[in-house]
Simulated scan of single mutants.
Amino acid sequence: MRTGRGRARSAAHRFAPLPTVTAALALTVVLLGVLPAAATNGTVWTTLPSTPTVRWGLAAAAAPCPVGQTGTCVYSVGGNSGGTSTGTTESYNRLTNAWSTVSPLSVPRRRLAAAAAPCPVGQSGTCVYSVGGLNTADATVATVESYNPATNAWSSLPAMPTPRAALASTAGPCPLGQAGTCVYAIGGNTGTANVATVESYNPVTNAWSTLPPLSAPRIFLAAATAPCPAGQSGTCVYATGGNNGTANVATVESYNPATNAWSPVTALPGPRSDLAAAAAPCPVGQAGTCVYAVGGSAPGATGTVESYNPASNVWTTLPAMPTPRLALGAATTVCPPGQTGTCVYAVGGLAAGGAPTGTLEALDPPPAPSDD
């Protein structure tokens, strides 16, 4: 493939992060307890216990906690650890403010994607899906597995039609003609080319469908599911940022499952790749659910955080992450102890200067006050 500078790279270095900028950075790592890190207009970052295993190029999702625990946990899945792909999977329980190591992927992978959706046919509850990536041989794979928290076990599922790494994934309403919630696999690189390919997995039918592609190929992009933009109804899938093979892009597109079509929406305020995304209540002063674009390469590790409001089709700049990072994961669930509401969690990645980090930070964007 081509890097962000357009130069060919050896297979051993495929999907390394885009060039970073070395800078002096004061890192605050809180291993026990929580620490409010920044606050602007009621929006607060909190630093939480780091992951037991430092990783980048990982994926994240929120799902029920593993057997023996209660509540919803944040899962960090796969990634690059010690210079190679790993199957390590860990869960953060906000009730105990602690990480647990759970069953690993059967196929270690980095530069994969993840989403939470109903478990596949024959199982009940909500599962974490791991999609695509690069294996330990540096080969691009179509591997898909689902983790069932109730059994603490991964199941192998039908492979994606198109092997891909550096892709994005999210769960949303299934496309036109199908019922239920599907897992979407968006963009990425096949090992020979960047692609605009979009495919969806239906847990009920245990089958993949090929959908309309993005307007152009993108890698290192992020995805989230939120209400459709103004003028459309229902819930849409958003593909945010990334790299087109020669440069970072600010492109944002929304896919409407009800019409089986992509639409352009307002671009990010600035181009970013290797970012993460999640959907959560909009920041204070706004109503509804927003898409949050977290960190990434601008180029160089950035702590930039912006939220997109589908109702106004406008991006809002929020307080930056305390730890600038790229190649990280993000997920949304209930806030940690001491806070209320729903938080966006940012986990792992590469900090400034290319240093791997296990940092976990949570952004609490309180919803707009009620008129009651």
Rank of each mutant, 00 (worst) to 15 (best):
A8D: 10
A8K: 07
A8S: 13
R9E: 11
A11N: 12
A12T: 10
A12L: 09
A12R: 12
R14Q: 09
A16L: 13
A16C: 04
A16S: 09
P17Q: 08
L18Y: 09
L18G: 09
T20K: 01
V21W: 04
L25D: 11
L25S: 03
L27K: 14
L27I: 11
V29Y: 04
V29T: 14
V29G: 07
L31R: 15
L32T: 14
V34D: 09
P36N: 07
P36V: 05
P36D: 07
P36Q: 10
P36E: 03
A37F: 01
A38S: 15
A38Y: 04
A38G: 15
A39M: 09
A39L: 13
A39W: 02
N41S: 10
N41R: 08
N41W: 01
T43E: 14
T43S: 14
V44F: 01
V44W: 02
V44C: 00
W45S: 12
W45F: 11
T46W: 02
T47P: 05
L48S: 06
L48P: 13
L48E: 12
T51P: 00
T51F: 00
P52C: 11
V54I: 12
R55Y: 00
R55L: 08
G57H: 06
G57M: 07
L58Y: 05
L58S: 10
L58F: 05
A59Q: 05
A59I: 04
A60S: 15
A60F: 01
A61H: 05
A62K: 04
A63Q: 02
P64S: 00
C65S: 05
C65D: 08
P66D: 03
V67K: 15
V67P: 00
G68I: 01
Q69K: 06
Q69G: 00
T70N: 11
T70W: 01
G71C: 01
